[in-house]
């Protein structure tokens, strides 16, 4: 049997098995009736075959239509209500970045530790995945956690889980993505928090993500325009994340991750009001991971909010 390894799993299974029960009942009733009628009314038996009583038909039709509708709506409500809490991402969560590409999963922990086709997480801690793809659509699916989320190019999608049981679980790419789709798999290792901390410490530590972004910010020449000493007109990026930005056409957007990313890759798409559209596109210059790091750096420039550790 499939382990219920996340806090979400039991709720999903409850609905799943509830539906199995319902299906068995309905298959039983329909199959039972068909069989009974098939035997009782097979050609040649002496069963009564006269006209139906008058109330059969209209009243019966209306009756079972209403009953079915009621059952259907009940299941809808039941399932939707169970999903609602999962739609809300938890506020305090370990935030892990995932970049998918044909045909591998690249994972970055906030501390800068990187993994490929593997993800180590502590048990009992909500983990939020911020995901994007470098090429085609992939999907991050972990059956044991009952989670799945498509990973899109040019956009961030996220999902979260809280692992409940220590162990190794399958990670599958569940959106067909070309030749080696079937090999785009990995292992999720759920560890006790202490073991996880030990594991983290043993890994070769790169710069943490925001720190890496800070270096790139200079290396790629962003600071020449956005830096404190810059002499070209460009908006300051401090405290940008989460704020409302007024655009040149007068509309407003919230500066979320997608906005930051778009500003780097296609600056002409949303031009900040009051500035010339002089920023060059970094499409193809900064790699997907570098964009992730830059976004992390800009987010960390926020005085109020600091990266969840």
């Amino acid at each position: 049997m499939l382990p219920e390894a996340s806090t979400l799993a039991p709720a999903v299974d409850r609905i799943f098995w509830g539906l199995v029960g319902l299906s068995v009942v309905i298959m039983g009733v329909v199959g039972g009736l068909v069989l009974t009628f098939a035997i009782k009314y097979r050609r040649g038996t002496k069963a009564y075959r006269g006209p139906l009583p008058d109330i059969m038909s209209r009243e019966v039709e209306i009756g079972w239509t209403v009953a079915t509708l009621f059952v259907a709506l009940f299941i809808f409500w039941w399932a939707a209500a169970a999903q609602l809490p999962h739609f809300l991402l938890p506020k305090k969560a370990l935030e892990i970045h995932v970049v998918a590409k044909q045909w591998m999963w690249k994972v970055q922990h906030p501390e800068g530790v990187r993994e490929i086709d593997a993800l180590h997480v502590p048990v009992g801690v909500p983990v939020k995945l911020e995901m994007t793809s470098q090429d085609v659509i992939h999907s991050f699916g972990v059956p044991a956690f009952r989670i799945k989320q498509d990973v899109l190019p040019g956009r961030y999608t996220s999902t979260w889980f809280e692992a409940k049981e220590v162990g190794d679980y399958h990670l599958f790419c569940t959106e067909y993505c070309g030749t080696d789709h079937a090999r785009m798999t990995g292992t999720i290792t759920v560890m006790e928090p202490e073991a996880y901390a030990r594991w983290l410490a043993e890994q070769p530590h790169g710069e943490d993500l925001a720190g890496e972004g800070a270096q790139l910010f200079t290396a790629l020449g962003c600071s020449a325009c956005h830096g404190a000493q810059a002499r070209v007109p460009a908006p300051s990026l401090a405290n940008l994340y989460g704020s409302q930005v007024v655009l040149a056409d007068g509309s407003r957007v919230t500066a979320d991750e997608d906005y930051l990313r778009e500003s780097i890759e296609r600056p002409e798409a949303k031009v900040t009001a009051g500035y010339p559209s002089t920023m060059p596109s970094y499409q193809g210059i900064a790699s997907e991971e570098q964009v992730v790091a830059l976004v992390a750096y800009i987010k960390s420039q926020d005085g109020k909010r600091s990266q969840a550790r």
């Binding site: 999903v12 539906l19 309905i26 039941w78 399932a79 009952r146």
Partner: peptide
Amino acid sequence: TLGGLTGLFLASIPVDVHLSD
């Protein structure tokens, strides 16, 4: 009938998340 009933599984969002693809 069985095909239709299993359609209900896939119409339920949390179950579909697990079963889709």
